[in-house]
Nucleic acid binder design. Structure first.
Lengths: 340, 340
DNA sequence: TTGTACGCGTTATCAG
DNA sequence: CTGATAACGCGTACAA
């Protein structure tokens, strides 16, 4: 549609050879003063920009990296992506964002899209760490992979979050308030965050000498609807929990909806804790306590790690970073109501 | 890093010429039964995928389209992007998402990134329709542009939202409730949505025979902080408004924060209306009335329009679609408190 | 310091 | 129906 000037035209315009033009473009040291100026002027005049497809072909690198996440619509993932995007862009890379909706089939399709595009690297938060097909597809890519809060039986870089610590703080708080029946809604144990949260939950219960009641822990999808469904199940128990932890970055809304549907009030009837510091948590009434981590920082670090890897600046062994998680106290937790 | 098989290797593996291999890959009709099978088997064996950089160079098209938005972190924009992404991916395209933070300089930089990448099309929601530099930079791209809720003095396709209608419904409601002093916080008039909302606001005021009070309308950035700042200013007026409309898709949080800071309650002290149907609006207490539109549909349509344009299926004149906006009633509006 | 020429992986054209 | 070959735009080794 729009024919952009090629390096050949640029060379002609500047009265030099294509080789020289190329050297100027790539800032080679050995270029004559006068020639440099001539070519730069021509670049300006023509509005020349090297064709990155041709550069890719020549250099064997696309300067693009792919990311597969559940859903860009989830605030924490958007923050992550935004930060990664910005960091990568500074380094001349571009991010290709793909959403899997937590579906294995979709993940495989998207991996194939990225394969065709010859991305230089991949940031991935798979829906299941235990799926051999996805694992195989990732390996087949043969490129630097950065795992987003996931653990694989592979030597891949990763940026993890210490969900356990935040969960333990939250549990300490609830227990100190006198809660004994604490409900937990989280995702499948096939992903690290679910396991870490459950782990922290169990440990604190044990420490407090409270028996673990499997009926109080419900796992499902990480989405709003699952959260609503599982939380509702918990709330309709005859001996319902006096506190509820939404153990997923996008589950708070579902939990609130369930609480509302059950005509319960926070924190009077039930204490509530979310797992990401969203607008909803900040501006809900009462403001909701959350176990949160810095998603933007996570994005920056992820980008940095993969850039390092691509630049060959990382050694042979995997780089694993762990971000801390904090328990943020607001107004959604109180001592349990005295049971009648 | 990872050397993928080329079409030449594929041809060798299958015992045919590269031309034939190419024909099989691209599903040309004239290929012999046996050869077809041989090549397909070889593709399978080698895990061959055509290099899209090479395809781009050959075909002059990258099958990628760029999108410049304010911030992917804004829920409505994330929904939009997600839907556009999915639609484009189905058609074999990829979306390159770039965030401008509403900065003109950043927009120019990002336009240049897309220029280098030779994207085939652009979806854009610029921070100002009146900036000649941005306009010029867009034109210089010489490619199909789809405007996202923006108006330019150019023949570009666009998907617009009828913000006016939703605003009028909202105003009707507030006026019928008896509100006379209605505050409006929105963005700069350099973008269409701000103008449309203000327009609807003024018209309804006029219809109701209420004088337009400029002190009640504050414009600034579309971000949370601006919303907080402007809303706070409104709330600290000696004769403060009895209702507040947050006229931007990401302003509700700021408005709520301002209301909270002023120790006012919704809807007792002040009625509140937002401009996008977010989790915050749905799960706030009380649930917030909003003027909303279907951002996902907007994304789908945008993708479709630009795909049509790229396929040459659109005529010479611009295609402009307008989505309706709806006023959603929940619990955040009530009659004004009787002033003491 | 500068110019020439080749090859990167594809697709399309043209013979056969 | 199939094979050979040119061309896309660029970077670089090599020659001058």
């Amino acid at each position: 549609m729009a024919k952009r000037p090629t390096i050949k035209e640029l060379a002609a315009e500047a009265g030099v050879s294509v080789g020289t033009a190329s050297r100027v473009i790539n800032k080679h040291p050995n270029v004559g003063e006068a020639v440099l100026r001539k070519v730069n002027e021509a670049i300006e005049r023509l509005g020349f920009t090297p064709d990155s497809a041709a550069q890719s072909m020549r250099g064997g690198t696309t300067r693009s990296i792919g990311i597969i996440i559940r859903d860009i619509t989830v605030p924490a993932l958007a923050s992550f992506t935004r930060a990664a995007q910005d960091t990568l862009e500074e380094a001349g890379y571009v991010l290709i964002v793909l959403c899997s909706t937590d579906s294995k089939e979709r993940e495989l399709e998207l991996l194939d899209v990225l394969r065709k595009r010859r991305v230089d690297g991949l940031i991935m938060a798979t829906s299941s760490e235990r799926d051999p097909d996805v694992l195989a597809a990732c390996e087949r890519l043969e490129l630097p992979i950065l795992l987003l809060d996931r653990e694989y039986p592979k030597d891949w870089d990763a940026v993890l979050v210490d969900h356990e610590a935040g969960m333990e703080e939250a549990m300490d708080h609830l227990l100190s308030l006198g809660h004994c029946r604490i409900g937990l809604v989280t995702g499948q144990p096939t992903v690290r965050p679910s396991r870490a949260r459950t782990e922290g939950y169990r440990r604190k219960l044990e420490e407090a000498g409270i028996a673990y009641d499997p009926a109080l822990v419900r796992t499902g999808g990480f989405d709003l609807n699952s959260a609503f469904f599982e939380a509702s199940a918990l709330l309709s128990l005859q001996d319902r929990p006096t506190a509820l932890i939404a153990g997923g970055i996008n589950m708070l809304g579902g939990a609130i909806r369930a609480i509302r549907a059950a005509r319960l009030s926070v924190p009077g009837d039930i204490s509530l804790i979310g797992s990401a510091d969203t607008e909803l948590a900040m501006f809900s009434t009462p403001p909701t306590n959350v176990i949160s981590h810095d998603a933007a920082e996570q994005g920056r670090l992820s980008a940095q790690l993969i850039l390092n890897r691509l630049a060959g600046r990382s050694g042979p062994d995997p780089h694993r970073l762990t971000l801390s998680s904090q328990y943020v106290m607001r107004g959604s937790c109180a001592p349990p109501a005295k049971s009648g």
